[in-house]
C-alpha cells in the first residue's frame, strides 16, 4: 500500500565511512533518483554516487569571456567613438591602459557566473522541499548523514526499499510525504 503524496524514503547513517559505503550500495542496487545529505562534502562521495563532474567550470569560463569582452568593448567604444578626447597625446585606443579594467571585469563576470551557475544547477533558492518535513533531517546540517531515495525512481518499492536500507545499515528509516 503506497501513501498518496509520497516523496521517498530517508535513512540515517552515523559516519562518513558509513555514508560512503551506503552510497556505493545504493548505486550498485540500481537506484538512480537518490541523494546523500552530509553536513560537509565527504571525500569520494561523488564517485560513490556515480556523479559526473560539475559543469560550473564551463559556465565560469563563459562568464569570464563575456566580462572581459564587455570591459574592453566599453572602453574602446567610449574612448574612441562616444567621447574621443586626446589626453597627454596618447592614442584614443590605449590598449595597455585598458587591460586593467578588462581584467577586473573578467574576474567580475567569472565570479557572478560561478554564483549564478551554482544557484541554477542546484535550483536554489528553493525554500520548500519535502525532506524539510522530516524532524530528524535537521541533523543533516549538524552531525548525521542521510540517504534519500525518491518515489519516482523506477526501482522504488516501499517494502523492498525499506528492507534494502535496513540491510545496508540505515537507522531511523522514515517515509517522507510531499
Amino acid at each position: 500500500m503506497t501513501p498518496k503524496n509520497l516523496y521517498g524514503m530517508l535513512a540515517e547513517f552515523q559516519t562518513p565511512k558509513e555514508i560512503l559505503d551506503a552510497a556505493n550500495a545504493v548505486r550498485k542496487e540500481g537506484y538512480i533518483d537518490f541523494d546523500c545529505h552530509t553536513p560537509f562534502p565527504v571525500h569520494g562521495l561523488d564517485d560513490a554516487m556515480g556523479l559526473k563532474r560539475s559543469i560550473v567550470g564551463f559556465i565560469v569560463g563563459i562568464g569570464c569571456v563575456v566580462g572581459a569582452t564587455a570591459g574592453l568593448t566599453l572602453q574602446w567604444w567610449s574612448s574612441t567613438i562616444a567621447y574621443p578626447i586626446i589626453i597627454s597625446g596618447k592614442p584614443l585606443f590605449s590598449w595597455q591602459a585598458f587591460m586593467i579594467i578588462t581584467f577586473v571585469l573578467m574576474v567580475l563576470g567569472g565570479a557572478f557566473s560561478a554564483l549564478i551557475g551554482m544557484f541554477h544547477l542546484n535550483r536554489i533558492p528553493t525554500f520548500y522541499h519535502p525532506l524539510f518535513n522530516s524532524e530528524q533531517f535537521k541533523k543533516a546540517t549538524d552531525d548525521k548523514f542521510f540517504v534519500s531515495i525518491e518515489f519516482k525512481d523506477p526501482k522504488f518499492d516501499i517494502e523492498d526499499t525499506r528492507k534494502f536500507l535496513e540491510i545496508i545499515g540505515g537507522k531511523n528509516i522514515e517515509v517522507i510525504e510531499e
Binding site: A23, D35, C36, H37, T38, P39, P41, V42, L45, D46, M49, L51, S54, V56, G57, V60, A114, L115, G117, M118, L121, N122, I124, P125, T126, F127, Y128, H129, L131, F132, F137, A140, T141, F146
Partner: peptide, 15 residues
C-alpha cells in the same frame, strides 16, 4: 533552502 545534498555540494565545491 540548502539541504546538504551531495548533488549540491558537488556544484558548490566547484563554484
Amino acid at each position: 533552502g540548502w539541504r546538504s545534498s551531495n548533488r549540491h555540494w558537488q556544484n558548490y565545491e566547484q563554484a
